[in-house]
């Protein structure tokens, strides 16, 4: 479909301290209705948005980290994590939740949505965008 554009969302903030992470997630979910080609980048402190075992009850916030697992249902399955950002923060990919989708073209097999990338690959992903959204 010639009307399809590539939307790249760049997420660079830790969750809860500011509203950026939640706002981004809401825009992604609402935007999913337009069935475009969507890619999400998590880099810098944005990688903290996907840590496992979040429990913000003690700070009086909703645990929206559970919602990332629904992205596959919304056909959002191109999620890019910056390796350098993990390294700089003493994190590994295993500290992040696994995100999967069911591949319609492959008998609904469950596949990982997450791709670990370096800065060169990130620059290519940014270059692939028709629309860039920053949070």
């Amino acid at each position: 479909m010639s009307n399809t554009k590539t939307f790249v969302y760049i997420n660079r903030k830790a969750p809860y301290g500011t509203v950026y992470a939640l706002e981004s997630l809401e825009v992604v979910l609402i935007g999913a209705a337009f069935e475009q080609n969507v890619k999400l980048i998590f880099m810098d402190d944005g990688v903290f948005q996907l840590t496992r075992g979040q429990d913000p009850e003690g700070i009086g916030m909703k645990n929206f980290s559970k919602t990332y697992a629904a992205l596959g249902d919304y056909d959002i399955n191109q999620i890019y994590i910056d390796q350098q950002s993990l390294d700089d923060r003493g994190l590994t990919i295993d500290d992040l939740q696994a995100l999967v989708y069911e591949d319609e073209d492959d008998d609904w097999n469950e596949k990982s949505s997450i791709h670990l990338v370096n800065r060169e690959q990130l620059s290519d992903i940014i270059e692939s965008a028709d629309v860039l959204l920053n949070f």
Binding site: A14, P15, Y16, F48, T51, R52, G53, Q54, D55, P56, G58, I59, M61, S65, G90, D95
Partner: peptide, 14 residues
Amino acid sequence: LSEDLKARGLSEER
């Protein structure tokens, strides 16, 4: 602050 660590899924050992 422990509540903020817990919120972000960061355990005490980290």
